[in-house]
Amino acid sequence: MSSVTMPESRPDRGAAAAAEPIARPKVPWWLVGLAFGTLVSGQVVGFLTSEPDRDMGHLQKIMYVHVPAAWASFIAFFIVFWASVTVLWKRNERADLLNAAAAEAGAVLTGLTLVLGSIWGRPTWGVWWTWDARLTSTAVLFLVFVGFLALRALTDDPERRARWSAAVGILGALNVPIVYMSVKWWRTLHQLQSSPSTVDADYVLGLRWNAFAFAFALAAFVTIRYRTALFALAADRRAEARALAGGSTDAR
């Protein structure tokens, strides 16, 4: 049923693949360093440049991690959307690996958004959680991408896994504008989006700094996971090719 590529029909290519050395995945250390540096300095800058908020005091500092986590998750899901469409449109194998890497990062960031928001909500709102439209739609977004990762873990056939992932990826990504607009469309406990006009200048600096830090961290994670997946795929291919070409089961 599954249409796995059959190397025996092209013996030359199979033999060549078996002999090819596979490059180890390169870790973008400069990106990791940049992310780590901006993340640490972002908190220092945030704490040093802003006075305690008039209403919530130092609790306002949670904004510097909660909001950038949410923004970075939106970027991740934008990548998911683009990769998913590419998978369905062009049957691109690499797009599927990028899809998985971005979905994974997006799920973690959404989980982080929920946890940090909850920690912020308890002392300011008075509750850890409430079923308003913003919180509920974010929880749905999180669950869809947990489902995405579970689906991938449970599906063996790579082609089917790619297609199903793409379908769930598009659905999940479509939830992002709903999450974003929820505070405008419905009455919520969560406040409306802030803007530079509703936030004093000294809070804006810490927020922007951390927005970049989270974006760098996202880029680093997605790159590492994508390259690792490419490496694993190449290793699988080579093992397959060797088994077919030489009959030896030793994949080394």
């Binding site: 209403d55 904004m63 709102w125 409430t130 989006q193 509703t198 004093d200 000294d202």
Partner: peptide
């Protein structure tokens, strides 16, 4: 529950 506005002021 307290509903905070989207304003953050020193």
């Amino acid at each position: 529950m307290v509903k905070h506005s989207n304003e953050y002021r020193a």
